[in-house]
Structure formats: structure tokens, C-alpha cells
Computed example of a mutant assay.
Amino acid sequence: MISVASNAVPMFPSLVADDDPSEFAQELAAGLRARPRQVSPKFFYDATGSALFDQICELPEYYPTRTELAILQEHAADMAGLIGANAEIIEYGAGASRKVRLLLDALERPQRFVPIDISGEHLHASAAVLRADYPALDVRPVVADFTRPVALPPRLPGHGRRVGFFPGSSIGNFDPAEARRFLRLLAGQLRGGGLLIGTDLVKDPLTLHAAYNDAAGVTAAFNRNLLVRANRELDAGFRVNDFAHYAFYNPQQQRIEMHLVSRCAQQVRIADERFDFAAGDAIHTENSYKFTVEGFQALAAEVGFRARASWFDAQRWFCMHWLEAPA
């Protein structure tokens, strides 16, 4: 779920805990100094932003969630067979942990579930529900930057493979170089195990446009919540209602770009620094890259993963890959 030109600095720097306003202030100020202006989408996910994203996943225009759920419902048993018994599942960017339930239900004696997410309040609430629903499962939530090395719980004797779960095509929020670095990190964390990962596929631009410009305006509210958060936590002074949500598909880059465009001249402050916006000035807030199956598998192979299986929805809009990690 950013100005139209390519960014001069990395669009998606490493995640930080959602309760660190100094990090938010520093990165927001740096992004507003940049040309084009930009803010990392990691800052979408305060408690309000996480709840809005859950709403987005239920929208009729937003196909990724329902298509990936359909794939899991149809093929979870096959996935579980490849993962094996007594597995430890690490979910990156866990959110509400809705999709992993289909996988947990299909697995043979899953031993541990480690959800990792930036939004601590949202994560702990989801983990508490999972503990109640899966009393035999060791649920260990980790509030952390999952794009950096994370201190995972030590493996226990008798456990099966350590398997990563990264649904939702969140890999598309990284630019290609960052995606490569992130996959290399996972290849090390999951050594000897594997990765079950979702990718949104290249398709009709009209379908993509509708998914990020829903009629109910939930995605627009999600995008603007970044400014609401900046006003609440940093007293920035954004005139939130004078920013337009703007999302479009860039076919050359094979990505959706999301932006916030100021409708009028205004000034904001981050700490003691003033930033001036003219009417039409934009903040680039997110990229969402789309993939071909062959292109993504080639990217994963560069860092040592081996593609072993792929599953699709009926329209072939979405793909889930089983990648074996290097031993």
C-alpha cells in the first residue's frame, strides 16, 4: 500500500518499534527533506493503521486476501506435507494471524508459533487469542524489526523444521535490492527449513487500480492515518483533510505506487524543522511490486532458496511459493 519519480534514498528503511516517537520523527523529517518526499510505509502500522488494514483485507476490491485464503484452504494439506511434523512457524509481519490458522490446522503437531510484527498492541492481542484457541502450541510473539536479525527463541530438541510464513505479498513492499537483502536474511534464519511466501502477480492494471482505490475510502483513510499519527505523536500540524490519496499502477516498474498529495499550501513542523508544501506537492508512502512466477523464483534462487512448489488461485492472480532454505 508513494512522488512519481524513483526515490533518491531507500524507500523502505528498517522497521522500528511502533512506540518510538524519536525514530518516527527522525525518519519522517529525513523523508520530507528528500526529493521526492517520502515516508516508509512501516509507519502506517500503529494500532489504528493495523485495524484499518484489517478492514482493507475485507473489501470487495482488495482481492489479495481472499485469493490467498482460497489457496490456503485448497492446498494447506499439501503445504503441510512439505513442511513436515513438529514444525516451528515464524510469521513475518503477523498482524491478525488469520491466514496462519489454516496452515496450523493442517500441520502435524506444530510445536511453536513465533509471530513477528511492528505493531505491539495488535500483535499481543492476536497472540492471546491464538493461545486460547491452540493450547498445545507454544506462541511466542516478538515485537521487532523483522527486516533485521531478530533474536528468535532457541530451537528445542525434537522439533521439526523452522519454517517462515510471509503471506500477503508483503515482499512487494520492498524494492528489488531490498527484497534480495531481506530474502538473504531469511535464508540464514531458516537454514535447513523453508519459506512459504505469497506474491501478487502482474495482471490487468484496472484490477490493480481498483484494489488500491476502494469505493468506501478505507485505503485512503489508511494512507492519511500516517499524517494523523504524525500530528498525534509529533504535533506536526498536517492538515490531514487537505491531502488527497493517490494510487496508481506504474507498468514500467511493475508496481503500485501510493502517494499523499497536498491540495493547498501548508506548513508542518517536525521537532524544530519547518517543511513547506505547495498545492500539488506529494509524499510517496508505499510501493507494492507485482511479480511473475519465474521472476520471483529467480530472485529467491539468487540468495540460496530452491523453489519446490507453487499454488495459484483460479484466476492466477496470486501465487504461494514453497521455497527450501539452504542447509
Score class of each variant (00 low, 15 high):
residue 155 R to T: 14
residue 166 F to K: 09
residue 155 R to C: 10
residue 185 L to F: 01
residue 161 R to F: 00
residue 142 V to G: 03
residue 130 L to W: 01
residue 177 A to H: 13
residue 175 D to M: 05
residue 147 T to C: 09
residue 160 G to D: 05
residue 181 R to I: 00
residue 150 V to F: 04
residue 135 P to K: 11
residue 151 A to S: 15
residue 192 G to P: 03
residue 158 G to I: 03
residue 157 P to A: 14
residue 165 F to Y: 14
residue 162 R to C: 04
residue 175 D to Q: 13
residue 177 A to Y: 05
residue 163 V to N: 02
residue 177 A to R: 15
residue 145 D to L: 01
residue 176 P to C: 08
residue 137 L to V: 11
residue 164 G to H: 00
residue 169 S to A: 14
residue 184 R to F: 01
residue 161 R to D: 00
residue 157 P to D: 12
residue 176 P to M: 08
residue 147 T to G: 03
residue 139 V to P: 09
residue 174 F to I: 11
residue 154 P to W: 03
residue 175 D to Y: 08
residue 138 D to W: 06
residue 186 L to M: 14
residue 153 P to W: 05
residue 141 P to K: 05
residue 179 A to S: 14
residue 187 A to C: 07
residue 177 A to D: 15
residue 194 G to P: 04
residue 180 R to E: 14
residue 151 A to F: 02
residue 155 R to P: 10
residue 137 L to N: 12
residue 180 R to K: 15
residue 143 V to N: 14
residue 183 L to N: 09
residue 174 F to Q: 12
residue 167 P to N: 10
residue 152 L to E: 09
residue 182 F to C: 06
residue 183 L to P: 05
residue 169 S to C: 10
residue 154 P to K: 07
residue 192 G to D: 07
residue 142 V to Q: 13
residue 188 G to K: 12
residue 175 D to P: 07
residue 167 P to R: 09
residue 135 P to Y: 03
residue 180 R to G: 04
residue 149 P to C: 02
residue 154 P to G: 07
residue 133 D to F: 01
residue 158 G to Y: 01
residue 191 R to W: 00
residue 192 G to N: 08
